[in-house]
């Protein structure tokens, strides 16, 4: 069991180092997020009250679209220069590989959120709070779980990168609904305590998707 966690941590720190040394991907993702926020407000409205109302939905959509760029890359990079064969020769547990990648993606998405939130607060005039943080963590955990799963899947295919959004987005629907709903309630200073039910739902989704993809990960990775 300790070996499993050592492997997970090794994968995570390897990916972290790779991303840290070549920061172009992080930077381009952040800029893409900023661009999306701007485009949404150009396309939709100039009315501040309306933008404030739509902010939760736009935030999560921006996060989904921007993170797809990096999710795609998280397994794709192992396909280059025989890295995949290298990993397999080391005899790494497919689940550890999956979990390591998942944590890496979670970290990446959290950074993206930390960058987007203040921008959101400025551009769409919303109030930030600590409860919002819980929602963001839970939502991005689900996003990175399913994202890592489909990234592992599509990385091995020819033309796979076109397929990632098609397969991933419909699976994200429940997560999107719950995350947007809680975010809305938190921003509207939920007076009737509805947010607890939605938060619980979000936790249940996370657990189901995490277990489901950990159980099926070995079918995607062993080769």
């Amino acid at each position: 069991m300790t070996l499993f966690f050592q492997q997970t941590v090794a994968i995570l720190s390897k990916d972290f180092l790779m991303e840290y040394r070549d920061r172009s991907r992080l930077l381009s993702t952040l800029l893409f997020g900023l661009l999306l926020l701007l485009l949404f407000s150009f396309a939709l409205s100039v009315d501040p009250a309306l933008m404030r109302k739509m902010a939760p939905g736009l935030f999560w959509l921006t996060l989904f679209f921007a993170s797809t760029l990096s999710l795609e890359h998280s397994f794709q990079k192992e396909r280059e220069e025989g890295r995949w064969e290298g990993l397999l020769i080391l005899g790494i547990d497919p689940r550890a590989l999956f979990l390591g990648k998942l944590l890496g993606n979670l970290l990446f998405i959290s950074l993206l959120q930390l960058f987007l939130l203040p921008l959101m607060a400025v551009l769409y005039d919303i109030q930030l709070s600590w409860t919002l943080g819980t929602v963001l963590v839970l939502g991005s955990l689900g996003l990175s779980t399913l994202g890592t799963f489909y990234s592992a899947l599509t990385a091995s295919l020819r033309e796979g990168q076109f397929l990632l959004p098609l397969l991933l987005y419909p699976m994200l629907v429940p997560l999107l609904l719950a995350s947007v709903k809680v975010t809305e309630l938190v921003l509207a200073r939920d007076l009737f305590g509805q947010q607890v039910a939605w938060l619980k739902l979000l936790i249940v989704f996370d657990i189901i998707f995490l277990l489901g993809s950990l159980l099926t990960a070995e079918f995607l990775i062993d080769r």
Binding site: F149, L153, L167, M171, V173, P174, L177, A178, K181, W198, L201, F205, I208, G212, S213, T216, F219, L220, R223
Partner: peptide
């Protein structure tokens, strides 16, 4: 063989997702 394995894994996950989608939209 790979095709069968991968699409079975995805098939399982998708089917499990159906009731979740249903419930979440119903709440919505």
């Amino acid at each position: 063989v790979r095709r069968a394995k991968i699409s079975s894994a995805v098939g399982l996950l998708i089917y499990l997702n159906v009731p979740i989608v249903y419930l979440s939209v119903r709440w919505w």
